[in-house]
């Protein structure tokens, strides 16, 4: 009896593994394709049917991209932008979220709805007004133009507010009895408890910031103020794009994110599973 269940269980395990392996292969194919393409000649990238393995590995594609674009500058700009935006959002959004979740003040609901409307409006609508603000501030072509508009987000506030709402009121009351003020409650009680929510927000913010293309391209023009994504886009010509160079650049652009993912895998999955979105 127990034996047969064991066999059955094993078989199901096998099936699950097979499905997972297929899924993993599907997910990893674009990455492998990107790496293969980055090592091909220009002619090989445009062949139909496609050439899968390059005849001769073209390592020089990598040094070529490094030669044509100021990659170190791109890395620096992207890392600074991403870090500043992530830290800023974690801090500012959690402060706002705490207020919305726990403090009673007049006009709170109106304010909250106002903030939610920001969530509902597509980002492109903000492009022009935000650009005008940057013009007025004289911030075109600067790093702070990349950072400041992304220091706060309605999404982050909403996400963390839901987190704080779900926490037992008793904790807060106990802290109050011990003489904590609002800020102390927020800092000592709420933040440590909301760790997984904060991590989820950090992941989203970092990813979005790393990949953001339109805003950096619109607001900054000179190569030494570009981020990786915007700099890479400039590898595309009007009539002619050298795909092997573009892919070599892309590989160079994503490896830091892949490294971060490998090191923070556990937190990533926890954080994303928790919010139930992607």
């Amino acid at each position: 009896m127990s034996r047969s269940i064991g066999v059955k269980g094993k078989r199901i395990n096998w099936i699950i593994h097979a499905i997972l392996i297929i899924g993993a292969l599907i997910m990893v194919t674009p990455f492998i394709w990107m790496i293969l393409t980055s090592l091909k000649t220009f002619g090989e990238t445009t062949q139909v049917p496609p050439v899968i393995f390059p005849k001769k590995i073209q390592w020089h594609n990598y040094s070529d991209v490094f030669g044509t674009l100021p990659f170190l500058k791109f890395y620096w700009n992207t890392i600074i932008t991403t870090l500043a935006k992530t830290v800023g959002q974690l801090f500012l959004c959690s402060l706002a979220a705490y207020a919305f979740a726990r403090i009673q003040f007049p006009g709170k609901n109106v304010l909250f709805i106002l903030m939610l409307t920001v969530l509902m409006v597509p980002g492109q609508v903000f492009l022009l007004p935000q650009y005008m603000i940057m013009v007025k501030l004289g911030w075109l072509n600067t790093l702070q133009a990349l950072i400041v508009p992304g220091l706060f987000s309605a999404f982050g506030t909403f996400l963390l507010r839901q987190f704080f709402m779900s926490m037992p009121k008793e904790l807060e009351e106990a802290a109050k009895l011990d003489g904590c003020n609002h800020f102390q409650i927020y800092w000592h009680i709420m933040l440590p408890l909301a760790k997984s929510g904060l991590i989820a927000l950090a992941i989203f913010t970092a990813l979005w910031s790393w990949n953001d293309l339109m805003w950096p391209l619109i607001v900054n023009s000179s190569p030494d103020k570009m981020t990786l994504s915007a700099g890479l886009a400039s590898l595309q010509g009007q009539h002619l794009t050298n795909y092997s160079l573009l892919m070599a650049g892309s590989v160079l652009a994503i490896w830091p994110m892949i490294l971060v993912f490998i090191f923070l895998q556990k937190q990533f999955i926890e954080g994303i599973a928790l919010t139930g979105s992607k």
Partner: peptide, 23 residues
Amino acid sequence: VKIEVTPWEQYWSKLETAATGNS
């Protein structure tokens, strides 16, 4: 002369934004 390249796909959106922003 400072030459700045914006890829074709985004050039016109950028130009239009800059025109509106008077820059």
